[in-house]
Each structure stands twice: as structure tokens, then as C-alpha cells.
Design a protein around this nucleic acid. Structure first.
Lengths: 225, 225, 225, 225
DNA sequence: AATGAATGAGTTTTCATTCAT
DNA sequence: TATGAATGAAAACTCATTCAT
């Protein structure tokens, strides 16, 4: 029983792998860290392998080979495998939180804000289901686990804050905002990542409106009958 | 980079470990597979270790040693480590589904049935949080992953069926029962045993009423205002 | 620049290597640890390689290969490479101390006792010069270093005690017994097995009487003129 | 199993490190090799790191970084890491021999000369204990090992010559000067910088008079009684 | 049916050395 | 002369699986 399914790593797209989401023109690629530099290629390779096969598939050898360098080269750019993933996590999760926060700002009222935030979370998770799973749930290096916890807390804090103010405004019924926030993250993750993980034969995008409605109900938006 | 904390496996209760939940007299132990037989002891050992330290702690050596046999003996009873966990998963998850189904039968009306089912799910998960996490989320052998998928489908099917009939009765608003079912399992799992769940210092049982209210709202039970 | 000279390990005597010194009939080989058992073969291989090329040549791979087993097998018998060397050190050094103590018992008066003890030390070191060097000086795993320190202390304590009582009896002039003891171990080691020692071409045994005379003078045995 | 503690190499004095002992105006720095040249800075860096953390801490990267150049630059000035240490050894040991020879010249009679020489050896070793250990005992590259041997021979030759003439003058009893010389170097080294030497907490300088007395006795200077 | 020693491919990490710029 | 990123072979250690007894 092989612990990690490494199959399909080497024969997969050797060239690039999925490019980073949101790697737009305004990205922070500095001169010291050019977009095509080895460090970036290592991060991109780790991202691609994790997105395809999860953390378990992302051995140092696989990452380096995908990046087109020798294994030892990774250690010129990161102190350890864990450090690489901390950087990767921070970057990817940071982008998620920013996107969610932006979604909140685009909407006026309280309850709809929460729906918009979770809708954003869901849409983005759907784009990289295996990665979303790795970010949300897969057990990792302790070093990375700490980073994950920080970002889950950020997710929850964002939602929790929005929920609390909506409750204070009387727009939502009394509830424990932390619990609701955690549950909603879990609900969206399960609803999307779960069914998608094995066979992506379902068009999960069609589920988004349904999911919005569910979130609406769960937070207690007044629903007529 | 250590994959998983294996602490406390060998020095823990050598004799028994936590007995299987619901290991009642009407168990399916056949004559060929007596309750005290080696095969059962292996399953019980794997269960106990997983419940304590997760899948990562459940090495063949640890399981065999806890069962009081040699490592090689495991292969007399299971084709591989993965096979053992398939059997274990099937058994444990089957019990969960049965318990949830029973909970449904004890309640008359539609919406409350769903709440009762998820309440049962939540209560049982709280009794073995590490195990619940392993069953729900921890990445496993591909062999076992398939089994897990089957049981996620079973959870979802049970809830989905109840949701559908309540919707048909007009007791709940129109919705995609599969989506709601999956989301609710995710919500409860995340809120109780996920990384966002409160630590061991908080009494998670206190969250159950809040969680029931959340479920009520999410399925669309008429909410006052 | 290769850190460790591994050359000549594999092509050397594959069969046995130098048998343990003093592996006599009354050895403590237990039933659980038969003389031909893998554990003993690993210890013998480690001994042989260290005696030939020092600790630096004694990689896990080289030891296992010399013992005729796979590298992983070493870890069935020792928790780590360091543990193996702790066992080896304890065994080898223990024998040295015993031999020196016996030599002391065979002689009556104080000053001659010290000469006899160091003579024994010297004779035995000459039998395995490279090993003696490894035991006395070569930097090691911290685990093993502690063990070495313990035995150097034992050497010194034995000598120091003999010196002190001889000084108290008035047989030797006033001196710091600890300093003299350490210096004598260093003197004998250097003269016989250190980098200043004559090469293999010279018969070092011929030096023993000279060395005895030197020790005699150093401790202050009355020497006429 | 970590071979050597490398702690505190990078954060230590980046600028200079301990300047070479005896780096006096009459140094042999040629025009082709100016004192502030890269080659000299590399030697100084290697010296400083070895004096602080031993040979094990002196990686090519650490040396180059301390010298303020890139790792590759080392290979412009030395064929290999080993070559650098050969040069370093030759220089440092040469200085030691010179210092010992000078000490001999300052004293008239035979026996006292030997005591003075070893006293010098001991004093200088105490000033850089870690370096002394590296020079005297630590296992090195075979290339460097040969150099060390040469200088240990030089130590011995110097002492041996003095011993021989004192014996010929009748100032000391008959003995094998080479053996005595080697043994004395070993005795002083062990007593001061070996594993049996007192830790840094003890003032080893206090041992010098005792050590002089021991050396006196060992060479056979007329002893009272 | 059971043993448990042995396997061997796998993991992460280090570091002297090279070479295109 | 100098750079410093890249190399690649080495290290110690893990663990699911096999097989002679």
C-alpha cells in the first residue's frame, strides 16, 4: 500500500501545470524574484502537483523534477520542504481572503454580503478542487499546519464579523457567529469538494445558485413561504 | 519533515483500546470470524489507533503490536493494509448510517427528522473526534478513499431522501436535497471536528443546540421574525 | 573533497573482518543474541569498519553491507546508528577497563601498578590502532561522545585512584593525580596510535619497555642517576 | 545523526574573526598575495571558523560567506577545500614550531629547554583550544591529514633533537628521544585540550605549573628523594 | 495459522564542486 | 576574477510487504 499516490506526476503536463490563479499583471513579482525564476518555478510546480494529487504527491523529488531542477536546488530557495509550503500557503490563502473581502465590499447589506463572500469562496474552490481540499483539510507538515490554521481563522473571522454586525443590525436572527461561520465554510467545502474529488463529471457551477440559497437560509435571512 | 505525530501509540492501553461503539450482542460476527479472533483483534486495534492518532499513526507494525500479533500475521487476514481499512471503514460507517436512520425513525415530522439525524451524527462525531476526522476528511489510501466516497454517498442519500419527502410534503422550501445534504454534513463536521472546531478545552456539547438551530434554518424550516 | 574515506570498504574482507578482541568462550553471548545473529554481525561489521577506516567510514550502508544485510535491517536491531555505536563502545571500552583493572590487581606495590596498567592499555591499543584512535579521539555522534567521555573518565579514575594512593603512601611525589592520569593516557595514546606513532613498518611492540620507563619517570618513581 | 554542531557560524563576527596569531609585520605576504587579497581573506575565514567550531563547521559556503565572497570564488584560489586547509595547516603549524623553537633559544640548559618548549606549546594551545583540537586530533581530509603528520613530525623532531642533545650531555637519562617527544606532545594535548581536559569553567592556566613538573619528571630531570 | 527478521524503494536533507555569465 | 545557481551523490531513516521457518 503506497502511502502517496505519485502516479501520473511525471507523465502529466511537464511544461507548466496550472498557472497560479489570479497571477495578474499587478502581481508582486519583484526583480529579485522574477516570474520565471527557479524559486517561482518551484512554487508553481508545488502548486500544480498539490492541485493534482494533494500534499502526499508533492515529494521534494517530484516538485524539483516538475520544476526542471535537481532536488538539491530546492534547498537553495527554501530552508525546507515545509518552508516552501508555508510560502505557497500564505500566497494562495492570502489571495483567497483578499478575494472574499473584495466580494464583501461590493455588496451593501449584511446578509447578502455573507452570501457573496461564500459564493466567492465556492467559485474559487471549484476552480481547483484538489487544491482546495489540500488547503482546507489535508494533514500537513506542522509548520504548514500552523499557517493553515491562521488562514482558516482569517476565513472565519471575516465571516464572523459580517455575521455579527448583521445580527446586531437586526438583519439576522440571534446566533453564534463563530459557529455559523465555521459551519458555512465546512458546508461549502463539503458540498463542492466532496462530490468533485473523485469524478468531475458533475457541472458543479450549476450548484452555485442552490448553494447561495442554502447559505441564505442557514444564516437566517427572512424567507417568506 | 515528519508526516504525522505517532506519539503514544505503543504505550497506550495495550490490552484493548476503546471498544467498538455499538458492539452489541446482535453484531454480525460470524462463526468463521469469532469476536475474539485475530481478524477482529486487528480491526479493533486499527480502530483504536486511528481513533487516537489518526490514519498516520496506524502503521502495520502498530496495529499488529496492539492486536498482540506479529506484523506478518496481518497479511493472513487482509490482502493489504488498505483492505483492512476498507473493511473497517465499511463497518464503522455502516454503523453510523444505521444510527442516523434509527434517529430518523424516532421522529414523526419531516423537518425535525433531518435535524434529529444530523444531531445524531454530531453527537457521535463528538464521542470520537479524531476518528470522525479520519472518516470524514483525512486523506487515505486510494482503496479506502473509494470506500469513504461510498459512505459519504450513503450519508447524503439518507439525508437527501428525508429532505426530498419533506419538500414534497411542503414542509420545506424547494431545494436541491443532495446539495443540502452534503452541505449539512460538511457544516456539522467542520463546526465540530474540523480545524476550526474549538479545542478540547471547550465543551463542544454546548454547541449542539446552536447547531440544531443552524440546521433548522439551513433546511428552510419556517423561521419567525 | 570527499568527507569520509569510504574506499576499500566493500572490497575488503567481506566475510568477517577482525573478530572482536577477547571474544573468548566465556563471552556473554545470550540465547536471545546468538553470536551469529544479525545484531552481532552488525556490531562485528561496525567494529571491523571502524578499526579499518574510522568512524567516518562506518556509514549505515557500509555496515549493513559488510554484515550481509540490507540497510533497513540495522534499524530492527538498533534505534539509530548512534545507538549501535553506543553498544559497541560500551562493549569495547568496558573490556579495556576490565583488562586494565585486572592488570592492577596482579601487581602489589603502587608505582608498578600504574606502570602495569598503562602497559596493558598500550599493548591492547597496539592490537587495533585505528580502532584505538577512534575510541580515544575521533569526533562522534553526541550520543556516542557521551559514552566515550564516560569511559575516558573510567580510565582516568582508575589511574587517578592508583596514583593518589601511591602518593599518600609516600611512594610517589606530590602531584595532581587527575592531571597525571590524563596526561599519561594522552602520552601512551599518542606514542603508540596517534599520528606521531611509527608507521606499520615499525614493530611498535619494541617500544613498550621504553614506554614503561617513561611512565615510571613521569609519575615520579625514584630514579637514580 | 548530526556529525558536527555548526551553531553560531553565520551570526558570528562577520567582519573579521580572530586575527591570525603572530600576524606580525614581517609576515610572508607577497605582492602577488596581498594581505587584504581574497586568498588571504579566505584563509583567515577558514582559520576563524575552525577555531570556533572545528573542521566540521568549516564548510565551503561558510568560509566563503565569512570571507565576503561567493562559494565558487574559493576555487579560483585553491584547487579544492582540502588544498586550502593544507595551506592553512602549513602556515599555522609552522608558526607553532617557530614559537617553540624561539622558546628553546631563550633557555640555556638542556632539560629546561624541553620544559620551556612544551610550556609554550601548552600556553598557545590554551589560547585557541578548539583550534588546537582541530590541529592535533580532529579527523580531516586525507590531504590535510598528511600535512598534519608533517607538522607533528616537526614538533617531534624539535623536541627529539633537544632531548637527544640533553641525553648526550648526560643531563638526562638514556631514553628513546622520538618516543619521549611523541608521548610528551600527547600528554600535553590530552591534559589540556582532549576530551579529558577540564571544561571551560576551570582555569586551565592553573594546570601549567603542574604540567611543567610532570614534563620534568617524564624526561628524567633529577628528582629528589 | 503465525512468526518476525529481512527487504528495498522511498523519504528529506547536505555540501563540495562546476560552469555559464 | 568573480559570481551564485545548479548539481548530484551521498547521508540517515521509515515502513508496507514478503517468506522461510
Amino acid at each position: 500500500m503506497s502511502r502517496a499516490p505519485v502516479a501520473g506526476v511525471d507523465d502529466a503536463r511537464k511544461a507548466a501545470g496550472p498557472s497560479f490563479p489570479d497571477e495578474d499583471a499587478t502581481s508582486g513579482a519583484s526583480v529579485a524574484d522574477p516570474a520565471g525564476g527557479t524559486r517561482e518555478r518551484l512554487l508553481a510546480a508545488a502548486f500544480a502537483i498539490t492541485a493534482e494529487g494533494g500534499y502526499g504527491a508533492a515529494s521534494v523529488g517530484a516538485i524539483a523534477s516538475r520544476a526542471g531542477v535537481a532536488a538539491g536546488t530546492l534547498y537553495r530557495h527554501f530552508a525546507s520542504k515545509g518552508e516552501l509550503f508555508v510560502v505557497l500557503f500564505r500566497r494562495v490563502c492570502g489571495r483567497e481572503v483578499v478575494a472574499m473581502r473584495r466580494a464583501a465590499e461590493d455588496v451593501a447589506s449584511g446578509p447578502e454580503r455573507i452570501v457573496a463572500v461564500l459564493d466567492t469562496f465556492a467559485r474559487r474552490a471549484l476552480q481547483h478542487p484538489r487544491l482546495a481540499w489540500a488547503l482546507l483539510a489535508e494533514p500537513l507538515d506542522p509548520l504548514v499546519e500552523a499557517e493553515r490554521l491562521a488562514y482558516r481563522r482569517a476565513y472565519r473571522a471575516l465571516l464572523s464579523e459580517l455575521l455579527r454586525s448583521a445580527v446586531d443590525d437586526g438583519a439576522l436572527p440571534e446566533q453564534d457567529p463563530d459557529l455559523t461561520a465555521a459551519a458555512l465554510v465546512g458546508a461549502v467545502g463539503e458540498a463542492l469538494v466532496g462530490p468533485l474529488a473523485p469524478g468531475a463529471d458533475v457541472d458543479a457551477t450549476a450548484l452555485l445558485p442552490e448553494l447561495r440559497a442554502l447559505v441564505s437560509r442557514a444564516i437566517g435571512t427572512a424567507v417568506p413561504r
